[in-house]
Computed example of a mutant assay.
Amino acid sequence: MSSASVVVPPRGSPSVSRAVAILNLIAQRPGGWSLTQIASSLGLAKSSALTILTSLEAAGMVTRTEHFYDLDIGVLTPAGGFLRGSDSITQFKRQIVASELLSGELAHLAVLAGREVTYIARHVGREPLPVTAGVGDRFPASITAVGVALLAQLTDDQIVDLYGDLERFPRWSARSTADLPHLLSKLRETREAGYSVDDGETYPSVFAYGLIVHRVGNHAQDFSMSVSLLRDDLTPKRQAQALEELMGVRDALEAGNDLR
């Protein structure tokens, strides 16, 4: 499940940015989007949206059924190449399972995509929550443990460039980071601590830690991983153990070792 909004990135090639935004929009709701819906949702002229959709259809990225567009099998080609580029996902899952506490919790691996994170792996050690991310889902980076860990690698100036034009921050609970000053403050705390915290920002009953996994395999981009704990079961001892085990998984991934 993903409630993240799709926006056209403000920099880079406009045509490429719009094509990516269209693919991300269609991915949010399988079953078909009309040309009018796509153009309206992204603030594009229908003629511009049609030109991009025609190119995406020719490339096998989208398919058209009468008046509706949906994703086509071609979108799996670059994703498959990414996943084949490293065994990091397999190692992540194996190491989470081998961890005493983490194996019974929810754990995720994600990458940064603008103001959102894209989840590329997950471990479900207990019943998932209604807002638990699945592989391929995109959540707001500003309110997730994985997202804040990744954003903390950017400078304050880069964060201002990324979020300065955002009039309203996505808020999924009363605890969600509401504006740029609060985000900047949270990122400074994350840099000092060496890990990020989601204290009920995505779901009121959940506490999560996030950690960076620096470039592993032949990936050029850093990952971030998190563990989500139920606040009702939270104790200082349990928190400390979760963070310690998550750091152990991070260290093993970066070293290319297996925890078994």
Score class of each variant (00 low, 15 high):
Ser2Tyr: 06
Val16Tyr: 14
Arg18Ser: 10
Arg18Lys: 15
Arg18Phe: 06
Ala19Tyr: 09
Ala19Asp: 03
Leu25His: 11
Gln28Arg: 15
Trp33Met: 14
Ser34Tyr: 07
Thr36Cys: 01
Leu42Thr: 08
Leu44Arg: 14
Ala45Ser: 15
Ala45Lys: 15
Ser47Val: 15
Thr51Tyr: 13
Ser55Glu: 14
Leu56Ala: 07
Glu57His: 12
Thr65Asn: 13
Glu66Gln: 10
Ile73Asp: 06
Val75Asp: 01
Leu76Val: 04
Phe82Cys: 00
Thr90Lys: 03
Lys93Phe: 00
Lys93Asn: 00
Val97Ser: 07
Ser103Cys: 13
Glu105Phe: 00
His108Cys: 00
Glu116Asp: 15
Pro130Gly: 08
Gly134Arg: 13
Gly136Phe: 08
Phe139Tyr: 13
Pro140Gln: 02
Ala141His: 11
Leu166Val: 15
Arg168Leu: 10
Trp172Tyr: 10
Ser173Ile: 04
Ser176Gly: 10
Thr177Gly: 01
Leu187Asn: 08
Thr190Glu: 03
Glu192Val: 08
Ala193Asn: 06
Ser196His: 04
Val197Glu: 15
Glu201Asp: 05
Ser205Lys: 11
Ser205Ile: 01
Val206Cys: 08
Ile212Asn: 04
His214Thr: 09
Gln221Met: 14
Val227Ala: 05
Ser228Lys: 00
Leu229Gly: 06
Asp233Met: 10
Pro236Tyr: 12
Ala240Trp: 02
Glu244Cys: 01
Gly256Gln: 10
